[in-house]
Design a protein around this nucleic acid. Structure first.
Lengths: 194, 194
DNA sequence: TCTATTTTGTACCAAATAGTACAAAATAAT
DNA sequence: ATTATTTTGTACTATTTGGTACAAAATAGA
């Protein structure tokens, strides 16, 4: 190895870029915005991400997905009661700052914004959300086996329902960015888990 | 009155513009896209809508809101059972084309896209959705009075829940644009109405 | 120290875009 | 027919944008 050393770390700048995309969405974010947030110049950027903004978005989303899934998996595996863990997962939403509420869910945002203008990228975001649904299902199946899930509903359908609740909250929390109100809503929703 | 006659009707072009915005969102839609869809030239456009794209978006959204609310109100008032009408309202989602599924809810889309980049406009879209919640509530209160709503839940909270389900479906229907799957999901959700 | 290699910063470019200016067109009223 | 009025179509402009080119900088290894 030789050559001039890089002044940035790929993961780090991807995370910074992800924050900007999360806040502003894909179209409203200019490469200029991204360069500023990442703290690097055009030369470095286009060398590292030849696909430009699009490649950056895909990688930023994939990174966030990996991080979120890994954390969920880890916490779920460590949880005594997987169903209770799902409850905690949703209750966390009602402990956010207003700024976070306004951002919604980065994957839901991607699905909403890109379904008709960048279908391949939308599909990848959709896959991330299906991954979340899969984790819900894992938790529910384990809950069923261990006896903490009493619902008579089919777990797969219940997982789908939870995904829809999650997707809804990504919008609703922006309309009502109030933790008290959100908490009430979430508790009602969780009643379906029995 | 005198002067050269207009070659277009404001309502008509607003509806055409609304379709484009619905499909593509705000940022991804160029004025060129809009002019083409509306079938008018720049001269006419900027004379009628001095605020340009932004004014057009606001008016298009307001028009769609008025139309949707008026239809809901009319059908609700004509319904024998208001709670059953809500059921029908949700069931309709599962009778859409794939193209419609991909568009989601125009107001939810606006909230998702604009919350951090055009806050005043996002708030107006949020108000439209709160209007829908208000109609849900009206229906539920009437159902309670007439004895067709048996749920012990507070109607206001139930209305909020229905709004969240609606918001969620605006995303979920794009991930699963399959009427069978959506139907299953919707039926489960409606169980909460008793 | 010299060379090969990689990254960086900047200058530059071509395309797209929103918006304006204004003359021509089309009407109603006198 | 003439005038006043309003709309239309187009030519033009200024700005923003994503992206490229390339020389200078900074390293590792010989």
């Amino acid at each position: 190895m030789s050559g001039r050393p890089k002044i940035f770390d790929d993961q780090e700048v991807l995370n910074k870029a992800a924050d900007v995309f999360w806040r502003q969405g894909y179209e409203a974010t200019s490469t200029e915005d991204l360069l500023e947030a990442m703290g690097i110049g055009k030369g470095s950027f286009y060398l590292a991400f030849k696909g430009g903004k699009k490649e950056l978005y895909e990688k930023a989303l994939a990174l966030r997905s990996d991080q979120a899934m890994a954390q969920f998996r880890k916490e779920l595996d460590a949880a005594d009661d997987p169903v209770e863990y799902i409850r905690e997962f949703f209750r966390r939403i009602a402990h956010s700052t207003r700024a976070k509420h306004q951002n919604g869910c980065i994957f839901g945002n991607a699905v909403a914004e890109l379904s008709n203008i960048e279908n391949p990228m939308m599909k990848r975001a959709a896959t991330h959300l299906q991954g979340l649904e899969g984790l819900f299902l894992d938790a529910l199946l384990r809950g069923k086996q261990e006896g903490t899930l009493h619902s008579k509903m089919e777990p797969a359908l219940l997982a789908r329902l939870l995904l829809n609740n999650w997707n809804g909250l990504g919008i609703t929390r922006r309309i009502y960015p109030d933790n008290e109100a959100l908490s009430e809503l979430i508790e009602i929703q969780l009643k379906i888990l029995g």
